[in-house]
Write a protein that binds this DNA or RNA. Structure first.
Length: 168
DNA sequence: TCCAATATTATGC
DNA sequence: GCATAATATTGGA
């Protein structure tokens, strides 16, 4: 994937951190975008009946996470776009509690791929649903930020909200 | 099929 | 601390 294009079905979610945008497919939530300063998306007037229930759950879960709490009820996630390896990684991420962090190497080892720390980083970067799939709770071995698709300041901000220890 | 790029990590200087 | 090699996965030539 090279660039993220604005999909026609991007629905806004207002939070204390800004306005996120959720994308839905017929199977569920397929992508979530961070607030964009010059967002030029044309927000649909209202959420179609088909996605309304999911959108409500997404909104609630997102706000919960931003308050440092468990997401609670999650909408179905459409992660069919990812490779098997990536989906395994994301599944591991879902098991990380708020305020806790793990290293890329630990994720790799949990999957039985000892030296795949780098590949895990790649999988995290390919994660279409940040925050809900807590890719931000994965740090480097020395507890440093590492990188983040939506900008590492977001990663730091999210960890700060959860009270996780991060190295300067 | 091969090559280069990664949100890493361990080792050596 | 900084430079370098090793490692797994992915996407493109």
């Amino acid at each position: 994937m090279k660039e993220r294009q604005a999909a026609p079905n991007a629905f806004p979610i207002s939070t204390s951190e800004g306005v996120f945008h959720a994308h839905y497919s017929s199977r569920g939530l397929c992508a979530l975008d961070f607030p964009q300063p010059q967002s030029r998306r044309r927000a649909a007037g209202r959420v179609p009946e088909q996605f309304r229930n999911w959108h409500e759950r997404t909104t609630q879960a997102l706000n919960n996470v931003l308050r440092g709490k468990r997401p609670g009820d999650l909408p179905p996630l459409d992660l069919t776009a990812g490779s098997p390896f990536q989906r395994r990684v994301w599944e591991q991420l879902l098991g990380i509690a708020p305020g806790e962090t793990r290293s890329y190497g630990e994720i790799a080892e949990a999957l039985g791929k000892r030296g795949a720390s780098r590949a895990v980083g790649g999988a995290c970067g390919a994660n279409p649903v940040p925050v809900l799939v807590p890719c931000h709770r994965v740090l480097a071995a020395n507890k440093k930020i590492g990188g983040f698709s939506g900008g590492k300041h977001w990663k730091r901000r999210l960890l700060e909200l959860e009270g996780a220890g991060v190295a300067a």
